[in-house]
Design a protein around this nucleic acid. Structure first.
Length: 849
RNA sequence: GCGAGCGUGGCGGAAUAGGUAGACGCACUGGACUUAAAAUCCAGUGACCAUAUUGGUCGUGGGGGUUCAAGUCCCCCCGCUCGUACCA
């Protein structure tokens, strides 16, 4: 009796798939296509459990769809530009390229050991100039069509990574990767006009029926559309005006101050005329260098010696402040304050003793009784507002805007929170921006014949500042226009640039243009995209924008890249600390009688919270160890079995062992009997047991199919286990029928195959099949068994289950009711005549007393 | 603050469209095998009561409601998690 030996059979079948090119994909218009994609990894060195979960989910879908008869594209590649390569270069003295390539090689080996059904012939790596040269062309196209431009703005500067970050990459005032406090800095950089697509990006969220609502909501909030008005306030003494954005133009009569952000352009001018402002303004800028309590910062302002005139009240002059709570890059960077109806303005007015004029009240004929305790922000009617009096807020907004337009002092507008995407990064290990600066001719795009602009191999990363800037032999070039000395752009692209279109490149990764439309038209959109929720706004919004922009430039025929999206939860593990309060690796901890000890048993270990696996807390399990010990089928089975994909899961030793035990039992089910000579065919049942095993097989096929279609893989596994238990039971019977057994086991293997492909291939072969199980079609349900004539019907009395009867479905309502009322367990409850008897055919019967 | 999601045994989690709550697994308990242990196999396992049964009561965060029937629908409250935040 041979033992289940995963390492042997897994290697065997991985080689088989590779030599037979089982998963290579070709366009075939006779079949419906299905494009499954998991977010490609950054090649950091080794795969981790998050990868294992992500790629197992994708592989299950890919193999399942293949069995369902789809022509499947399932590619994999490498998001290989990025800062860790530079950091590694500095600390280990290896070139980023060498480091990256080594990691790719290593991770590819690890992925192959998992037996994932990738079409490796489609592999791509974004740091390859064969990939990024197309990116440079796309950028030039964008530039020519006005979708890429250069400007000087205040940017988010990450002092640790020494680079600029996009708004999306700043989280709680910190760098999304470095966690460093972000500083504000004025710099010149390249931007992509994502704001041109704000409305489309928002509107088309509605078409993404198979995206999680949560992700769509996050994008919606990020885009942040709001309706309102621009209002001009003329300033006395000088010939200037301040334009503010307001969503509440109805409250204009309650305006009691104007507040400018410290970065407002009028402030620059004021600094010259009133030097004393300079000193004060530094107090406001505290915000940018302040530690954590950014959100708790006190609202402060500087009153300037100018006043603004009210657009509706010619004689009314309103004080102007420079205030730290006004955002420079939202709206116009200036607001009018209406303290009675906005809490921030209310607090500010209290502090600086400004007027508080109520202009909205919940009663039409408002008489002020008490002083306001806080801002009134509810619905109501306009008061103290001249021609707006008595109107609802909605109506007053309309009328107010009309009046502003009539006076030429404002207009209706729509404002978005979304800003243009800053793509310049002051890094080496990224795609060079194909621009040459000439003193005479200005910025010039690199001519197509000179593309790609390759990164120089020689680089000194140890000097501070932008590494490419210091690389004189690379940076100095001739201007393509006048041929005089010029300099290359030394910034490289944000690495989200690469991931914004890689999924389209996968459809023909070696094509001589960016996109082979013949292929992309067939394969795109991605039918199922799977990855982490952390990319809800970053990568997923950029990609949607990129495709819309490329579509507009006729580079691709596509409006939305990802038809269906699934976001997976995190892989968590218990944390451990030793008596010195140091984190412990789980592999160095043993459990004895509910207590934990170090592996040498000398020190007691305390167990902490179950948290996301992270290197810093050491609660990591190395997938390679798991695959080597238990096999990849076990790892795949366990990672899918316990929790629904969207939710966080806990990795436990017991869980893995349970999965391993199951696969061993599957092996035992087959190994002791030789099925090779038993014919594979469907025959009719003779005994109740025969019937039951057929019924269970078909029920399972039905349930598993439904569960996989709904992405409920843990339920699929529960059903598969139930069938397995029944198969084991049937096999143990003395009067079992080997032909029926072989038939049911075969079906069992086909539905298990997307989860545990190696053991299923091996078992399939043991059953005597000549062709691979990967080519076996998904089984069909025989409805004859599911629509069986006999069912068990529960009988309730007043909604409580009291008995059950086995009945034929063909019985009439009257007959069923009679049977129920005369059931021995029921009779004793019938102390009175039932008021009602409700029979829901084939489901339940309820007797109401 | 705002927004979203969740709350079911000791644990992870099931429960089409309102119709037998706790599938499947983990852990645990008992038994078989063994000199013993591990592994494996068999059985049990929501709580409580009980005449120990093929009996009963309670039970899906708490309170109320709709219904013949509520984990599921409606209202109020509590707790947890995630996202987001001076957005004018």
């Amino acid at each position: 009796m041979s033992k289940y030996n995963p390492s042997k059979i897994e290697k065997k079948w991985q080689n088989f798939w590779e030599t037979n090119k089982t998963f290579s994909s070709k366009i075939n218009k006779n079949f419906k296509k299905y494009y499954v994609l998991e977010m490609f990894p950054y090649p950091s060195g080794d795969i981790h459990m998050g990868h294992v979960r992500n790629y197992t989910l994708g592989d299950l879908v890919a193999r399942y769809k293949r069995a369902r008869g789809y022509n499947v594209l399932h590619p994999m590649g490498w998001d290989s530009f990025g800062l860790p390569a530079e950091n590694a270069a500095i600390s280990n003295n290896v070139h980023p390229k060498t480091w990256t390539e080594k990691n790719i090689k290593n991770m590819k080996t690890q992925l192959k050991k998992m037996g994932l059904s990738y079409d490796w012939s489609k592999e791509l790596s974004t740091c390859d100039s064969e990939y990024y040269k197309h990116e440079q062309k796309i950028f030039i196209e964008f530039y020519k069509k006005g979708l890429a431009y250069q400007k000087e703005t205040i940017v988010n500067w990450d002092p640790v990574e020494q680079t600029v970050l996009a708004n999306e990459q700043v989280i709680d005032g910190r760098g999304w990767r470095s966690d460093a406090i972000i500083e504000k800095k004025k710099m010149k950089g390249w931007f992509l006009k994502i704001t041109d697509f704000a409305e489309e990006l928002l509107e088309d969220l509605n078409s993404l029926k198979n995206w999680p609502e949560k992700v769509k909501l996050m994008q919606k909030n990020w885009i942040g559309k709001s309706f309102g008005a621009y209002v001009d306030f003329n300033i006395n003494k000088i010939n200037e005006k301040v334009t503010v954005f307001s969503t509440r133009p109805d409250t204009l009569f309650g305006a009691s101050f104007i507040a400018l952000s410290p970065e407002h352009k009028l402030v620059d001018k004021l600094k010259k005329d009133y030097p004393e402002i300079n000193k004060e303004i530094n107090k406001l800028n505290l915000k940018n260098t302040n530690e954590q309590n950014i959100d708790k910062i006190e609202k402060i302002g500087i009153k300037i010696p100018l006043k603004a005139s009210h657009p509706f009240l010619k004689n009314k002059l309103i004080p102007i402040f420079i205030a730290n709570f006004v955002l420079a890059d939202y709206g116009t960077g200036a607001v009018f304050g209406c303290p009675a109806h906005d809490q921030r303005d209310f607090d500010f007015a209290k502090k600086y003793n400004l007027e508080i004029i109520e202009v909205v009240s919940n009663e039409k004929n408002h008489v002020r009784k008490n002083k306001l305790e806080s801002a009134y922000t509810e619905n109501g009617y306009l008061v103290n507002s001249d021609f707006l009096n008595g109107l609802t807020i909605e109506k007053a907004k309309e009328v107010s805007i009309k009046e502003l337009e009539k006076l030429n002092l404002g207009s209706r507008t729509i404002n978005y929170r979304l800003k243009d995407w800053g793509v310049s990064r002051q890094r080496y290990w990224g795609c060079p921006i194909p621009i040459i600066y000439c003193d005479k001719c200005g910025p010039q795009t690199v001519p197509e014949k000179d593309l790609p602009v390759k990164l120089p191999d020689k680089i000194d990363l140890k000097k501070s500042g932008n590494p490419l800037l210091n690389q004189s032999d690379w940076i100095n070039v001739k201007c393509p226009k006048c041929l005089q000395s010029a300099k290359r752009e030394s910034d490289t692209f944000d690495t989200f640039f690469e991931s914004s279109w890689y999924f389209a490149r996968f459809t023909d990764p070696n094509f001589n243009d960016a996109i082979n439309k013949n292929n992309s038209d067939y394969w795109l959109p991605v039918d199922q995209y799977i990855g982490g929720i952390e990319h809800a706004v970053l990568h997923l919004l950029y990609s949607r924008f990129f495709i819309k922009a490329m579509n507009k430039l006729n580079l691709i025929n596509l409006n939305e890249p990802f038809k269906s999206l699934q976001t997976q939860g995190m892989v968590c593990h218990q944390t451990y600390k030793n008596s010195r309060n140091e984190w412990m690796f789980p592999k160095d901890v043993i459990k004895i009688n509910d207590k934990f000890f170090t592996i040498d048993k000398k020190d007691e270990v305390s167990s902490g919270r179950i948290e996301k696996m992270s290197k810093s807390k050491k609660n990591v399990i190395d997938p390679n160890t798991i695959v080597d010990t238990f096999g990849s089928d076990t790892a795949r089975f366990f990672i899918l079995s316990d929790s629904p994909p969207q939710r966080d899961m806990e990795w436990t030793d017991e869980g893995v062992e349970g999965a391993s035990r199951f696969l061993n039992k599957v092996w035992q089910l087959l190994i002791n009997d030789d099925y090779k000579d038993i014919p594979y065919k469907k025959i009719n049942y003779n005994t109740d047991h025969d019937f039951n095993i057929f019924l269970c097989t078909y029920k399972t096929i039905k349930n598993v199919t439904q569960a996989i279609d709904n992405f409920h893989f843990n339920i699929a596994i529960a059903n598969i286990r139930t069938l397995f238990n029944e198969l084991n039971f049937y096999k143990s019977l003395t009067n079992n029928n080997k032909i029926i057994l072989k038939f049911c086991i075969s079906n069992f293997l086909i539905i298990l195959n997307p989860i545990c492909p190696h053991i299923c291939e091996e078992a399939w072969e043991m059953l005597g099949n000549k062709k691979s199980i990967s080519d076996a079609p998904w089984p069909k349900v025989d409805l004859k068994y599911l629509n069986d004539n006999y069912i068990t019907l529960p009988i309730q009395i007043n909604g409580k289950r009291r008995a059950e009867i086995k009945i034929s479905k063909s019985l009439s309502t009257k007959e069923v009711k009679n049977l129920a009322l005369n059931h021995q367990n029921i009779i004793k409850f019938l102390t009175e005549t039932p008021k009602k008897v409700i029979y829901i055919p084939h489901k339940i019967i309820n007797i109401v007393l």
